[in-house]
Amino acid sequence: MAVALVMIGLPLVWILLTSFKERPDIYNQPATWWPRPFHPQNYTEATQSVPFWTYLRNSLVITSVLAVVKFGLGVLSAFGLVFLRFPGKSALFLLIIAALMVPNQITVISNYALVAELGWRNTFAGIIIPLAGVAFGTFLMRNHFLSIPPEIIEAARMDGAGNWRLLWRVVLPVSGPTMVAFAVIVVVNEWNEYLWPFLMSDDSSVAPLPVGLTQLQNNDGLTNWGPVMAGTVLTMLPILVVFLVLQRHMIKGLTSGAVKG
């Protein structure tokens, strides 16, 4: 674990320290860790040389909408697969599992052609709707719902609980950690999404932060990495805080369906 911590933590420390370095200091050979002199102006340049706050707003909009949509669809579809009876339920779940095995990059061309034909390029709808698939969330929540003791479900049914009441009064209250894990995974993934928003956005009006960071790089052959690293720190800081606050619930939620009893 110590080795893994070093391998994961050192790049983050390097990014943080580099964000306070002047341009000549970054290209020194041999490289030095500590910035000399301390140069916090990189953060000012990162937020003023590009419409950083517009990119931040776009990231908040895209991530929030996708988190709500994916969470809702994931919970409802998993509930249907576990607690409802209908023909073809097993085949439908196998189709969802198959969707997990298809890399997103394979569907880029077909999705791009469809979105362009609908006139959704450079819009929030064009970015959000193709990313609203919930295969992983359905799989995660289904496994958790299967771990709920059947006696609880039977008791609720005997008390006259319908499907909606069963969901809101019984299933969701005992699924807190798993729902937190699902929500954190969705938020982190959508906050860091780059390829599809990059293809769909033409300007800063809808582009999220990962796309906006590329605008900090110069095209003169020598990138000023100080502002780039400062922008990277500002981009990952909100999601890092969310993860650190909710990590205990996330780990508990991911393991809650591993065993029964």
Rank of each mutant, 00 (worst) to 15 (best):
A2H: 13
A4C: 06
M7T: 14
G9W: 05
L10S: 09
P11D: 11
L12C: 05
L12I: 11
L17H: 05
S19A: 15
S19N: 11
F20T: 07
K21R: 14
D25K: 02
N28K: 15
N28R: 15
T32M: 05
P35E: 14
P35H: 14
P35Y: 11
R36K: 10
Q48I: 00
S49D: 04
P51F: 08
T54P: 00
Y55C: 08
L56M: 13
N58F: 07
L60H: 07
T63M: 07
T63P: 09
S64H: 07
K70C: 10
L73E: 04
V75H: 02
S77N: 14
S77E: 07
G80V: 09
V82K: 12
V82E: 11
G88S: 12
K89W: 00
A91D: 03
L92Q: 12
A99H: 10
V115P: 03
A116F: 11
L118T: 06
T123M: 02
I129L: 15
I129D: 06
P130M: 02
P130E: 01
A135C: 03
A135T: 00
F139V: 04
F139S: 08
L140A: 04
R142F: 02
N143S: 13
H144W: 13
L146I: 09
P149A: 13
I152E: 07
A155W: 00
R157Y: 00
R157C: 00
R165A: 14
R169E: 14
V171M: 10
L172T: 03
P173G: 03
V174H: 12
V174A: 11
G176I: 01
G176A: 07
G176P: 03
P177A: 09
T178N: 05
M179E: 04
A183N: 10
V186I: 12
V186M: 00
V187Q: 10
N189F: 08
N192D: 15
E193P: 07
L195R: 02
P197G: 13
P197I: 04
M200C: 07
S201R: 09
D203Y: 11
S204T: 14
V206R: 04
P208H: 05
P210A: 04
L213D: 13
L216W: 04
N219L: 10
D220K: 01
T223F: 00
T223I: 12
G226H: 01
P227E: 09
V228Y: 13
G231V: 02
L237V: 07
P238K: 11
V245M: 01
H249P: 03
I251D: 03
S256F: 06
G257M: 01
G257R: 10
G257H: 08
A258G: 12
V259Q: 11
K260R: 12
